[in-house]
């Protein structure tokens, strides 16, 4: 398994594309600079930043991008450079995600007090292709009602989900659908818009 993965990566490197080393530099530097600006806002008199902070941020962003560009843009996938996806992500976090999270907490509080649980680990089909969307879904359902991601099948991107209260009948299915979790909002549809 490890040898197989190594070979795949190796083949990826051999397919050399001109500019392949330079293009990842730009989004990484921009992202690092934006994070630096967020962390230092309010420290100066030029708008909210001081000139020395801006200069230092630019220098650090270039250094960070030079070091980490191949890690940050590992798959050479630049779809997250589209600002619309970031806006959808912000809306997703504030509205459906937060509501589901509030619901999850009331649900867990109820189960803590009454002790009514019916736990088990099920296999859930996601149908996603990118690492980022699987990460978003896994983290989202860990923080939402009755579900906790335990494992990932790296070939099919299926998730193994521990559910605290499986509805009777659902455990019979070998592969459950994302609709079988107790959510009002359809997370996969949102995440597909953000990261697919």
């Amino acid at each position: 398994m490890i040898n197989h993965d190594y070979r795949c990566e190796h083949e990826g490197i051999e397919q050399y594309v001109p500019g392949d080393d330079v293009i990842p530099f730009i989004p990484t530097a921009v992202f690092a600079f934006a994070v630096y600006l967020l962390l230092t806002a309010g420290g100066g008199d030029l708008g909210v930043w001081s000139p020395s902070e801006l200069l230092m941020g630019a220098v650090l962003a270039v250094i960070a991008a030079a070091v980490s560009r191949n890690f940050f843009c590992k798959n050479r996938d630049y779809r997250m450079a589209n600002p619309v996806r970031w806006i959808i992500l912000a809306v997703y976090v504030v509205v459906p995600f937060f509501i589901e999270m509030a619901k999850a907490n009331v649900d867990v509080a109820y189960r803590v007090i009454t002790g009514r649980i019916r736990p088990g680990i099920v296999r859930m089909q996601t149908g996603f292709t990118t690492d980022l969307s699987v990460l978003l879904l896994a983290n989202s359902i860990t923080l939402t009602p009755g579900t906790l991601t335990v494992g990932i099948d790296e070939e099919t991107n299926d998730l193994f989900v521990h559910m605290i209260n499986i509805r009777p009948g659902v455990e019979e299915k070998s592969v459950v659908d994302t609709g079988d979790i107790n959510a009002w909002f359809r997370f996969p549809a949102w995440i597909r818009r953000i990261a697919e």
Binding site: G120, I121, N139, S140, V150, I166
Partner: peptide, 28 residues
């Protein structure tokens, strides 16, 4: 927090900790 919970759950399952009351365990 979400990533850490996943890491702990995965580590627990890999080290042989089975969900004790459980109706189904597809990962095992």
């Amino acid at each position: 927090n979400a990533t850490g919970a996943h890491a702990i759950a995965r580590a627990a399952h890999r080290s042989g900790q089975r969900p004790a009351p459980a109706v189904v365990d597809r990962l095992a």
